[in-house]
Design a binder for these strands. Structure first.
Lengths: 219, 219
DNA sequence: GGAATTTTTTGCGAAATGGTACAAAAAAGT
DNA sequence: ACTTTTTTGTACCATTTCGCAAAAAATTCC
């Protein structure tokens, strides 16, 4: 036939243009496959998720899985990394926006609840919390990621409170770091309880009560 | 027919008197065996703990394990029940004692930290939190126990705050239920972070900061 | 068209896992 | 001593699990 395959024109700068790989094309999209793997790990945890489950969920077979992401542990770590990126994106705007502190925190907890309660076969909870509970003790690399996750959240909250304090929304005596730890604690308790299928209403009530104390006590 | 026909209503009263059982005597003490099983489950979680591991740890062989405690899930549930009993005992006095609220809470957090940080091969964390993260979503019976654990803790804390309020240790506007949820949240965040090997000092600082805010002692 | 390259597919295999069958062992009752 | 009762110890089974090797397929490069 005519040679001249559909050569991608040089149109866009950073378009996801296929870079003309050399061999047999992949039958999967790494991104979506990783997403499916993440879903599974969130549902069942590391140990209870088998490579066969993962292969079935991603539509890949095990050798392909292996070739693409490494062994089970590596896949888990990559899934966790992906989860964190997703969470950062979901939270990013809110942490950036300069809203009144109360509104801001309300929105953060709302997004968190969306993340924790989603899932077809039950609330998926928070990967960081789940991973901390099980894998972080024994695996130094995973532990480092989990700890980083904690401090990242603490710092984001602390920045919020610090800003609010500068704007006069909090009393002079309020300690942003301490309040941030309480805000994180509230995130954690909500994540855990969500996983035990506590209804959203009750979780929202917990968040609101916590807000009352955190924002009111410093009045 | 798997049911055990034994159990004349004694055996639990503190009578170290061997009741002259009929067949071959047990080579293990059910209590200590269950304790070993609990240790293992706390260390690795449900899925990652094999029956072989449990048999090795208890010194029993698998058929004996099975005969004594049922299958893996039953053993897990019994271990969890045992954990809760132990925790209740450890906390009981403190929740009962009529100390100044701050002292009381300090002691509670100290005991909690002892429980969460103990363990030869790493901090064992809180069984309720770990179980919530993994098993509670899929298993209704376990979920019920976990939820009960949460409300039990919430209620105990609420009672503390209510009492403190009556004694005038808290402002009239303080809401014992909300404060209790914050106190629980602090327990949870500590349990999770402990599991990620956060040092005791930092965990204590988190507890103390939370106390400052909850008791309005932030100055 | 043929070589080179990359991925998929099939299937193997060794180990581990949860669970059970069954005989031997150890005690009490008679 | 013999029976009964209960537990132990060995062995086994069916399945799952993780990982890999080797062949087949699909694509680009020459």
């Amino acid at each position: 036939m005519v040679q001249k395959s559909k050569r991608p024109p040089v149109t866009k700068i950073d378009a996801p243009v296929p870079p003309k790989r050399r061999g047999r094309p992949r039958a999967y999209q790494p991104d979506v496959a990783l997403g499916k793997a993440l879903d599974l790990f969130r549902k069942d945890g590391f140990a209870a998720t088998s490579l066969d489950d993962l292969a079935a969920a991603t539509g890949m077979n095990r050798p392909s899985l292996y070739g693409a992401f490494g062994d089970k542990r590596e896949l888990f770590i990559k899934s966790y990394r992906r989860y964190r990126e997703d969470a950062r994106v979901a939270m990013g705007d809110i942490f950036r926006d300069e809203l009144p502190i109360r509104r801001r925190l309300e929105r953060i907890y709302a997004v968190a609840l969306d993340i924790y309660l989603s899932g077809e076969s039950g609330p998926r909870g928070c990967f960081t919390v789940m991973t901390a509970a099980s894998e972080a003790v024994h695996d130094p690399d995973i532990r480092a990621m989990v700890l980083e996750g904690f401090t990242e959240l603490d710092k984001a909250f602390a920045a919020c409170f610090r800003q609010a304090k500068e704007k006069g929304e909090l009393s002079e005596s309020a300690d942003p770091v301490v309040l941030a730890q309480l805000a994180s604690a509230t995130i954690h308790t909500i994540a855990i309880r969500a996983r035990a299928r506590m209804p959203r209403k009750e979780l929202e009530a917990i968040a609101n009560g916590a807000l009352d104390v955190m924002l009111g006590a410093a009045k």
